[in-house]
Nucleic acid binder design. Sequence first.
DNA 1: AACTAGATCAACCGCATATGA
DNA 2: TTCATATGCGGTTGATCTAGT
Length: 368
Amino acid sequence: MGRAPCCDKANVKKGPWSPEEDAKLKAYIEQYGTGGNWIALPQKIGLKRCGKSCRLRWLNYLRPNIKHGGFSEEEDNIICNLYISIGSRWSIIAAQLPGRTDNDIKNYWNTRLKKKLLGRRKESNMNRLSSMGAKDANGLEDDSYSPALSSSALERLQLHMQLQSLQKPFSFCNNPAMWPKLHPLQEKMIQSLQSLNGSPTPLWQHGLPSPQPGQGQKVDHFYEPPTTATVQEDFSNISNPKVNEMQNPLHVIPPSGNSMAFINGNNPMDSTPVPKADGIEQSSAGIEVSGFQAELDDFLSNKSAAFVPQEDQMVEFDCFREMNSSKDNVIWWSNYFDAKSATSNPWDSTSVLQSEQMFQDYQLGYNL
DNA sequence: AACTAGATCAACCGCATATGA
DNA sequence: TTCATATGCGGTTGATCTAGT
């Protein structure tokens, strides 16, 4: 027994909207609003459309102040930074870009920005490889080790970054007043973990920017570039989920639905063969690690320039430089929550979730 | 001019979550 | 608390456009 359809598929028109349909929907909503019921809306208007389709059409195309195309470099930068930080959570990303819809951003990322990133990466690696003779240590021309930062590697890199941000779970927010309150039991657990770690620093403040003089001031960075050592530590931790979980319970916080697949112990670096993606699959975890590690080292040798760019480290992963990335460009993040009011408008239903949803995610982790 | 491949983007689909009875 | 329904979201599809041959 499947789920009941949201509408009578047989009597519902699909495909592109006609100008007449657009006009009807727009006029009705502007006059009466949605009435809080999208499903009933098409009947009221006399449209042979599914309610979901009406909603989508309104949100993505008809509502006021929608911008299409012509993404600015600043917007590119925000999208890239956010994607790397939180993954494909388009609604949250869209909430930071007034007038942009999640669908638009998603399309833009998938069709252009991603290629821009990967393409630049490929170019730079090709250059490097050609200078190295394009052969590995064994003298083999190894197709399986793509000179480009493959999408899977990028994904894993993203996972790593998410992992890092989980180890520093609130590094996105520089204002302690906004840090969520922990359950007393959780605080106790963290205290005991601190004593386990022998760390005098509150665990969850590791990696947080140093306290700034005065709350609400702009911060220079929100992301502490991982060192190779910390990366290796991460993966060694991952390879032992139990220990990992004990040492760092925050690893179990899922930042998004489509990532952190190793939460249940299915970490990407264990010996289980991973699906082949972009020719990077290796039969042995060691090779997999070394391949990815090489990419990761390579990337990290640039000190995650996207976040804390340094002149001499921006040669390869320089897409962010192209987008005028600088430490100033990540300031928006410190104002993430303040931006909510600025970017919300009565028509922008997607803005509503924003920070609440992010906190829900983290709270979910705490509730585990 | 005709064809093809790749790029783009609007729209659909199914799932997860929220909400209310 | 449970269940049904509505909503929101991200992934995917397919029609259309564009550039190259």
